[in-house]
Amino acid sequence: MSFFIRHKKSAALKPKANPYPSRSPRWRYRLGFTLIAIGLLGGILRLHKPFYDGIEQRLFEGTAWIQAGFIHPFQETRALLKNTHVFMHLREEYERLSQENEKLKWQLQTLGALHHENGILRQHLHIPIVEQCGHLTAKILSSPYDGLHHFFLIASGDKDGIEKEQPVIVKEGVVGRLEKVGAHVSRVLLLNDSNSRIPVITSTSQQKAILAGDGTFLPTLVYVGDVRKIQQGEQVLTSGMGGIFPAGLPVGIVDEITNNKIRVRPYVPFKSIEWVHILRLHPEGFREELNAALRAE
């Protein structure tokens, strides 16, 4: 580096504070004008929602694209190191995957019978059989899960056929839903974000509620039918109401109940996941199925 630097003075380099006289009225005038312009323009744009949403969407796509480009080399390096590790333990990995494959084959056989039984029950209850939802697996680009920001950026977008509000899950349970969908990058709103609301049901006491994120690591249950019936350690599942999440997806476990405030510990290890699955539900078909089920009840 030293050959690149040409020192003009032999003295030690130190930054000099306030090298410019700045108490000029012109500067103050310019700042005041800028503040007023920002206030006026921002207020007008914010009130005109379609215009604001359009700008927000474009800015999101642009910034997410820059973020993805910035993170890409780091992720590739990490993947390379991980691949080296996997390559070194190839034999053990092969054995583990073979065992897992056998287990999955067995589970698939059991599920086949259940699927058949489900079809017969649907016929008896006159519930229309809607098209099965597919899923898309997407890589997480960035995950600032840190108590202040609760979202993931994922490397999938419009081009992959995903849509806003689709549920995002991993094998442990519900992660959240798609908040913004760009062309190649999308943002997942996690279930503990203060804007997240998920209709849930408790497994044992069968109490319907809404899981509301509040910016902490443990979201709370609100609008509970009867708080006294809920037990600590009870499983919380999605109830299927609301038309976004299908019923029966695991969400978390009731962690603590204090002063009628119920906190749920999510099953998903947000810090360590690298991939997520996006359920490609068809909202119309899903709502139709839900309404038919409610009518049947």
Binding site: I71, Y145, D146, G147
Partner: peptide, 14 residues
Amino acid sequence: LGGCSLRIGNYPLL
């Protein structure tokens, strides 16, 4: 861009 995904413990740098 660099600090977006960084955290120490459970808390953010940004």
